[in-house]
Write a protein that binds this DNA or RNA. Sequence first.
DNA 1: AGCAAATTAGCACGATCGTGCTTTTTGCTC
DNA 2: GAGCAAAAAGCACGATCGTGCTAATTTGCT
Lengths: 225, 225
Amino acid sequence: MDAGASEESKGQRTRAAILERAVEVACRVGLGGLTVGQLAVEAGLSKSGLYAHVRSKEALQLAVLETAAEQFAAEVVRPALQAPRGEPRVHALVDRWLACGRTFAPGGVLIVKASVELDDQEGAVRDLLEEQHRELVRSIARIFAGGVADGQFRVDAAPDQFAADLYGVMLAYYHAHRLLRDPRAEARARTAVAALLAAARSPHHPGAVRAPDDDASSDASHDEE
Amino acid sequence: MDAGASEESKGQRTRAAILERAVEVACRVGLGGLTVGQLAVEAGLSKSGLYAHVRSKEALQLAVLETAAEQFAAEVVRPALQAPRGEPRVHALVDRWLACGRTFAPGGVLIVKASVELDDQEGAVRDLLEEQHRELVRSIARIFAGGVADGQFRVDAAPDQFAADLYGVMLAYYHAHRLLRDPRAEARARTAVAALLAAARSPHHPGAVRAPDDDASSDASHDEE
DNA sequence: AGCAAATTAGCACGATCGTGCTTTTTGCTC
DNA sequence: GAGCAAAAAGCACGATCGTGCTAATTTGCT
């Protein structure tokens, strides 16, 4: 009968299928462009049949966002955390992140897209998204800080700065890859990450990579809220 | 009646006003979220009155995009081109870009937002946007290449790479500033740009190139460092 | 001033939006 | 297989979407 699924009831299974499909659709049209009728067609359900699962449009958007974040955490962040500390872990993160969208699970694409789409629209969806991105940036900073604690990175390197820089590299990758369809996008992202890491490495570095702002280096571990 | 500004006819003036308003609205809700009825209310016109100016929704989106790009070119790129070559010009570009949205017309915000929104939706709007971004990246690369020709930057530095990196820094700035509302966003963007420039500087070039107050140009409003 | 042309409003249309009901169909337990 | 709860569909609603056409108004020119 049923193709060997899990212990979930039918309703939960279709709900999961709906959300998975919704993530893909939202990757194209954005969270705001997500529509109940269109999604119902795309999921092979009637509009009201689908609506019984997602109780409102806002609830749908929130659920989609949570699904996407869970995909991203499961496919990118958590696996990267199993790589050795420092540079290997950073590279693992970047590798898996770059594969996001090529391989399955476009959740990573969606949370990036949604972050731009909703950055100026108040509401519960924005609130959730903001928290998710806070957590994402914190994760990157922590991964970097692990390399600092290991002695791989300079002690005066700021994890916050690194997190922002690395995220910027990924955003530039999305831009070049998705909008400009530039086949060199990935290579450039890797080059940029390598430069970031080179600047962060502890030993002797020929040129001053640090910003001219050489205020009293109060403390590098001043990154948490 | 009221003090007319230019030689334009009434129709062209209201059309310009509509598009200006549309850029602001689209900065919030995106190009896709832009709606004729809502925009008419926001512009103080009837729906059909407005629709006579923008002949279709797609034509409106195209015109809005062109308006935004022109704003960005007029307020950011072209003024920066009047700064001295090399680092000063890069800094002028970044300075004006960072001021985008706070100080003046938010066209720069829109083209960034639209680039993410439309990166996966075929059509004429995407085509225009892609071309605009190609031109933008080319502009950044040319600005950097000018510094290479001047001997300020290493000859083996790739302008393409620098352009992508700088754009990534700006994207990270938007992310931190607009979504996370992080007050340190601008400082971090400046730090990142400084690191980019430090990595690009000619190894055997004396530090004098970083002369802090060398801009004596006409319009470059250097307010800090 | 008056008049032609350009600009704006009024109104109507089919489609689709999000959201509720009420049935019908399905899946699961005896 | 029967009965029942869960899931899906059918249908309807007001609102708003993009888009036309026509009538009224305003503007620019002589």
